[in-house]
């Protein structure tokens, strides 16, 4: 199984320099649909699905390998080596922000610039550090995820198929939903929300832009500021967008700040 197929990698655009987009927990590469095309003129745009998400190869899901974020980072490194990427730009949303940081620590030549959208090095509060959640709340989340898998694969599919207004979305989303394995989603949630990468941040020497939304309940602004403070070459931009997914709720602003940064 090639890395390209395993991670459902798609490469578009004409630029010499690569820009790799990594999706966060809960979705797949579709979440870049409003952002990525804006860079296809100047960059070789690379989109992919983490193993266990979207249209990646579910058979390649190894619970041991993916029980830590480093397993996902290994995939990013393998994929970029395969694509012969050097000094590229990594754009990581949510948990993929930390996955990108781990990847560049492992292979510093891959990326010279990082864009971290809504990053959090640790979601659970720890002493003075405020991640935003308690351990109990994260455990509650894992159970809660089960509640929403009943409706997903079986009931959602046909309804989406019958959506005549936006037919272009139907097929890929049905696929995407059908491939959401509840056990993998639960495991990905666990590794995401129990990770702690605070001590990795000072080692990241690449230029890094932290993109922070004004009101983000998952990664609060003070967490974004913490990330910036611990990064040797970090800067923070707070954009006027609400929620954890500015890629979808405010794509123009996201495009703007990335363009300015690179």
């Amino acid at each position: 199984m090639s890395v390209i197929k395993r991670n459902n990698v798609s490469v578009r655009g004409d630029g010499d320099r690569a820009m790799v987009f990594a999706h966060g927990f809960g979705c797949d590469q579709n979440m870049w649909r409003l952002v990525a095309p804006a860079f296809e003129q100047d960059f070789r745009v690379v989109l992919f699905d983490h193993v266990g998400c979207g249209q990646s190869d579910l058979a390649a899901y190894d619970p041991e390998r993916y029980s830590q974020l480093s397993g996902y980072a290994d995939d990013v490194v393998e994929m970029c080596r395969e694509l012969k990427i050097s000094k590229g730009v990594f754009v990581g949303h949510s948990v993929s922000a930390m996955i990108g940081a781990l990847a560049v620590l492992q292979a510093p030549d891959l990326f010279s610039d990082l864009v971290l959208i809504g990053p959090s090095p640790r979601y659970i509060d720890d002493g003075d550090y405020v991640g935003g959640f308690s351990e109990g709340q994260i455990e509650e989340l894992l159970d809660f995820l089960d509640d929403n898998h009943m409706g997903w694969s079986a009931a959602m599919g046909p309804v989406i198929m019958g959506n005549p207004e936006r037919p272009e979305l139907s097929a890929e989303l049905v696929d995407s939903f059908c491939r959401t394995d509840p056990d993998i989603a639960r495991a990905f949630a666990r590794v995401t929300f129990t990770s702690d990468n605070r001590d990795d941040l000072p080692k990241v020497t690449a230029r890094t832009l932290v993109v922070q939304c004004k009101e983000d309940v998952i990664a609060q602004q003070r967490v974004g500021e913490y990330v910036r403070d611990r990064l040797p070459k970090g800067e923070l931009i707070v954009i006027d967008a609400t929620g954890h997914c500015p890629n979808l709720s405010a794509p123009d602003k996201v495009i703007e700040v990335i363009k300015e940064f690179v």
Partner: peptide
Amino acid sequence: IFHETHFAPLLRMQG
């Protein structure tokens, strides 16, 4: 968390 990671993005994508 679910709202932010699933509900809102998917609502935005498929309407």
